[in-house]
């Protein structure tokens, strides 16, 4: 399983520009948001988390399409499936590399976003990483499965976001709310709700982790 992740990471490292493209896209989306809304600094605390997460998820769907792309070429997926690897392990390896790509993009862009929106990152860094980790994990699990389901569809670049974004709506809501609560600080009016949103994301990750492994096995057996 580690070998599979390593293979994907190596492939990605060979095409560094592919790794950079979603990050550039996320940055662009956030910039456009500021131009379109023209918020005051006070409004940015309220609107920034939403803009941040919408940009991340949109950029994330760009990365998802590539998860199975190298295997589709040369029918390498069949070879991978024939290899003595557990299907669940194969799926989890794919999801893990998707999460790593997306996490890399987020790690790169989060400081830039916080600087652009003039929001304090350092005081909330630890908890923000937890929020981002939970959201990224769930999004990658569902997204990897959807990337596999749509791998034979025409216009899949379009189909994948259409499927992935509504299905992961709970993650978007929870991540944006949690980030905003963190920004408002312990004195904020909703600080007690933080654990609620974290629990929601954790439950989402567990439910769809199990369901996606199950679904992947069902589609793969042909």
């Amino acid at each position: 399983m580690l070998a599979l992740i390593a293979k994907d990471l190596l492939l990605e490292w060979r095409h560094k520009e592919q790794l950079a493209a979603p990050a550039v896209f996320a940055l662009l989306a956030a910039t456009l948001f500021v131009f379109a809304v023209d918020p005051t600094p006070a409004e940015l605390t309220r609107l920034g988390p939403g803009a941040l997460w919408v940009s991340f998820l949109f950029a994330g769907t760009l990365g998802l399409g590539k998860v199975f792309a190298p295997e589709e070429r040369d029918d390498a997926l069949t070879a991978l499936l024939l290899a003595p690897v557990d299907r669940t392990a194969l799926f989890l390896a794919k999801a893990a590399s998707a999460a790593l790509f997306m996490g890399f993009m987020e790690a790169l862009m989060t400081p830039v976003f916080f600087a652009l929106f003039d929001l304090p990152l350092l005081p909330i860094l630890g908890r923000f990483v937890l929020v981002a980790g939970l959201a990224t994990a769930g999004f990658s699990l569902l997204g990897t499965l959807l990337g596999f389901l749509t791998s034979r569809a025409s216009a899949r670049e379009l189909l994948l976001p259409i499927l992935a974004l509504p299905l992961t709506l709970p993650l978007l809501i929870a991540a944006a709310k949690a980030t905003r609560i963190l920004l408002e600080g312990p004195a904020g009016p909703r600080f007690a709700d933080l654990h609620l949103w974290l629990t929601l994301m954790l439950a989402f990750d567990v439910v769809f982790g199990v369901l996606c492994c199950w679904g992947f096995e069902r589609v793969v057996e042909e």
Binding site: L142, L145, L146, L149, L167, L169, I173, F208
Partner: peptide
């Protein structure tokens, strides 16, 4: 098969979406 898996996932997701909304 792919559509059936999507159907199950979407149906399971609906209560979660409803709750979060």
């Amino acid at each position: 098969r792919a559509a059936a898996v999507l159907g199950v996932i979407a149906a399971v997701d609906i209560p979660i979406i409803h709750l979060s909304v």
